[in-house]
Design a binder for these strands. Structure first.
Lengths: 172, 172
DNA sequence: ACAGCCATGTAACTTGTTACATGATTTT
DNA sequence: AAAATCATGTAACAAGTTACATGGCTGT
């Protein structure tokens, strides 16, 4: 959540309500629900951490809104997030957001991100295969390693589809 | 962690130190490290929740150990965990542990678990494809859905390998 | 009049995570 | 004498999650 909200703010300042909508749109139909409270909790924690700043904006015929923007530290953190090549649990969703954050903000090149990530996954794949060699065949450990391996391969194939997607977009 | 520790205790009562070792062995070389503190924290929280009970055991020439065992509520919870077909972030590792917990404890049939899980994933796959139909082709949303789909397919293939594994084991 | 959108948040709880502290015993 | 193993935990923070509370405006 933390990094995701930050990356949305990297595109443009926004208030909580808007962020929630953008996020749900970004995650699409597969994203599921998102408790509004979560967004506000995250924002206040980010503020406490000095990564965002709020400014109250009065509106004529609507409740006031609190528009948040990144601080320098926040922007730095987003940039590091974009460059981070860790493939965590929530991988595909998070990477998807990362890609579009890169495209929207110009803080990083999407195609380069995909490539870096692909290389990282391939490295992990090689490492898995090395481990598998040391494991007795048909053992429980080997089974688990195969699962990880199949998943990584699927993810690599997805990254290739992503690359295609962005190359086509660039050529337009 | 919670459910994992519980499932290890479902096999047999154990103390924290032992649980940590078992867990690291179960996760194999891909599992990485595990801070000992984590285990003890989890155990004390489980105790507070009334899912496990401890009894101190004195040892002649070693520090005393605290052997934990499941309560009725704990055992009930493990059983529900085994039956739960949710495919969360940490999916493969967790499912792997679930499978072996089932095999070790006799609280559930591994082959049946794999089958239930496979059916669930196939259901999710169908659902994804329906969503994809409503999404414009080559859109950002479609890309994300494809990623999810590729992953699910890989996971299904892994489940088939698991099934194979356990069928062979049973026939021995 | 009532539903639904706009807009905000807090309190409380759970879980993960780590750094640190302690101390005996066995092996090298 | 040093290092590894056995064995336990605490304090503190970070993060996710949800239930609840508030209130005005807009459209039917």
């Amino acid at each position: 959540m933390r990094d995701v909200i930050l990356s949305l703010l990297a595109k443009e300042p926004a208030h909580g309500y808007e962020l929630r909508q953008r996020l749900m749109r970004a995650l699409g139909p597969a994203g599921g629900e998102l408790n509004p409270g979560q967004v506000y909790v995250t924002l206040s924690r980010l503020e406490r951490a000095g990564l965002v700043e709020a400014s109250e904006v009065a509106q004529p015929s609507y409740p006031d809104k609190k528009v948040y923007d990144l601080t320098a530290a926040g922007r730095e953190r987003v940039t590091r997030w974009l460059a981070d090549v860790t493939w965590s649990k929530v991988a595909p969703l998070e990477f998807h957001l990362k890609l579009f954050a890169a495209a929207d903000t110009g803080l990083a090149d999407p195609v380069a991100l995909v490539d870096a990530q692909r290389l990282e996954l391939l490295r992990e794949l090689r490492q898995l295969q090395e481990l598998a060699l040391r494991e007795p065949p048909d053992s429980d450990g080997a089974l688990l390693l195969e699962g990880a391996s199949l998943r990584l391969q699927a993810d690599v194939r997805w990254l290739e589809a992503c690359q295609q997607h962005f190359l086509e977009r660039e050529s337009r």
